[in-house]
């Protein structure tokens, strides 16, 4: 257990990290879709609406853009300052958070998030290409790399790590959900004739293709799901992310194994062991979409509990708060 940090600062670092991760993931799945459209086999019926679905923003999109054309979807997800989860909005929020905690993060981290912001600010709609998204993804990854290589493993890093891993687990589950739903609307379709290119794209957007190959070889929907949900070694799988999130949480709380776990630990521990002991056939049997939907709901509840346990300033040590109400604030 390291020295305590300001609750406000912990909250800000946590969200800074989540926003950068969210921006990176959005750049990832847009980039893959762009590449699919270049590929004749996959590009004939290039679909753009699924990207909006991954982000869970159908309503917001339809209200303002009507047609899910390439340009509309790209603008909405990338540059729209009024859509709070566009890459631009996430990056701007991450930078604003970083600005508030400049004394806690390192100069290099600040310069990197600042650069990311200026890349997005200067982006022109006509240049939203593979090159652009690859650049955005790399600039965001560099921020994460600097964080990991420059910050002492004290509370600041732990909260950044907790935020990043919860966000990544959520993003992987969303990418999987939409693709799975689109490609295989019912569990009975498992084993049907599949479009390998689309599945490849799914793996690609999580940078998982090569690692998947090394583990499983041929691409099957079942194995892809297994890899992204339950694999313990792949750093973007849901199980891996939860394992790392739980580890960060243990460090934040100190070694309190002898005390009854608080709400955050209970919720996170339960979800993590569900993943640890599940088999992919059980998951598919429940219905993939239902399973992932439940997963996202439980992640939100963990977010609520993190907020209540660490970020709400308490003037004296009180008993653990009861079940917090409301949804997590999407902003810090």
């Amino acid at each position: 257990m390291t020295a305590p940090m300001l609750a406000r600062v912990a909250n800000t670092v946590y969200w800074m990290s989540r926003y950068v991760e969210r921006a990176e993931n959005t750049a990832r799945f847009i980039d893959v879709n762009l590449q699919l459209t270049l590929d004749r086999t996959g590009g004939i019926n290039a679909q753009w609406m699924p990207l909006v679905s991954i982000a869970g923003a159908e309503k917001a999109f339809i209200e303002r853009y009507k047609e899910p054309t390439r340009d509309n979807v790209l603008h909405f997800l990338t540059l729209d300052p009024d859509y709070p989860n566009s890459i631009f909005s996430c990056v701007a929020a991450a930078r604003e958070n970083a600005r508030t905690v400049r004394e806690t993060i390192t100069t290099e981290m600040w310069e990197q998030v600042n650069e990311l912001y200026h890349v997005m600010r200067n982006a022109q709609p006509e240049f939203l290409s593979h090159h652009f998204y690859r650049g955005a993804k790399r600039t965001a990854m560099l921020f994460t790399a600097i964080t990991d290589n420059a910050m002492s493993r004290t509370l600041g890093w732990d909260f950044a790590q907790l935020g990043r891993m919860l966000e990544r687990a959520d993003n992987t589950s969303r990418i999987l959900d939409v693709k799975y739903f689109l490609l295989l609307p019912t569990p009975e379709d498992v084993g049907s004739n599949l479009d390998v290119i689309q599945w490849r794209a799914l793996l690609h957007s999580t940078d998982a293709l090569e690692m998947y190959r090394q583990t499983y070889g041929p691409i099957t929907p079942r194995n892809v799901a297994d890899f992204l949900v339950l694999n313990r070694d792949f750093p973007r799988s849901m199980a891996f992310c939860l394992y790392r999130a739980a580890r960060a949480l243990t460090r934040i709380r100190g070694d309190d194994a002898h005390h009854s776990p608080n709400l955050v630990r209970r919720r996170l521990g339960q979800l993590q062991s569900d993943l640890e002991y599940a088999t992919i056939d059980e998951v598919i049997g429940q219905g993939m979409h239902e399973y992932l939907d439940g997963f996202q709901t439980r992640l939100n509840q963990i977010g609520d509990a993190v907020n209540a346990a660490f970020f709400q300033p308490r003037d004296r040590e009180e008993a653990e708060p009861s079940e917090p109400k409301g949804t997590p604030a999407a902003t810090s």
């Binding site: 257990m1 305590p4 940090m5 300001l6 609750a7 406000r8 912990a10 509370l155 909260f159 934040i252 660490f310 970020f311 300033p313 308490r314 003037d315 004296r316 040590e317």
Partner: peptide
Amino acid sequence: SDLIVHDGYVQMRTTAGL
């Protein structure tokens, strides 16, 4: 807003209390 006077001292609100 991070600071509060408590028990006769100035204290800051941290993730682990005051």
